[in-house]
């Protein structure tokens, strides 16, 4: 897919308008996964807007977002960066063979108390 189409697709899928961003950085300041991310929420917004999406597709940052919606609620412009992170991640994991988590990974992750919720949530975010 060419650059322009990918940008359009991500914007349509997420429902986010990156042009609303005023680059205040509050989304990244409140992000609990900030330290683990190569690209931070405000960078996702800017990179999608400028069509510089390739680095995001290849970055582990896609899998560090907790879907905590802190950036969604605290952005003063209602940009909702988490929806972009998700839309970019889907562009990757929807491709054949690109699942980030597989059933084979599960046994090693289990302990006696692991709630079902943990596994279904992780599969929903990391696997198609």
């Amino acid at each position: 897919m060419n650059k322009k189409n990918l940008r359009e697709e991500i914007i349509l899928r997420s429902g986010v308008n990156p042009k609303k961003c005023m680059k205040c950085g509050k989304c990244s300041a409140t992000c609990p996964a900030y330290d683990e991310m190569e690209y931070h929420p405000h960078q996702f917004v800017n990179m999608v807007d400028t069509g510089d999406i390739e680095p995001l597709l290849n970055s582990d940052s896609l899998y560090k977002c907790l879907t905590c919606f802190a950036c969604v609620d605290r952005c003063p412009r209602g940009v909702e960066p988490a929806k972009l992170v998700e839309a970019v991640r889907l562009s990757v994991i929807r491709k054949q063979g690109e699942n980030h988590l597989t059933a084979n990974d599960i046994p090693a992750l289990l302990d006696d108390e692991t709630p079902q919720q943990l596994l279904v949530s992780a599969f929903r975010k990391y696997t198609k």
Partner: peptide, 11 residues
């Protein structure tokens, strides 16, 4: 099962 976490994408 609800799936545990909401998928925000519209598609």
């Amino acid at each position: 099962c609800c799936g545990g976490v909401f998928t925000t994408s519209r598609d």
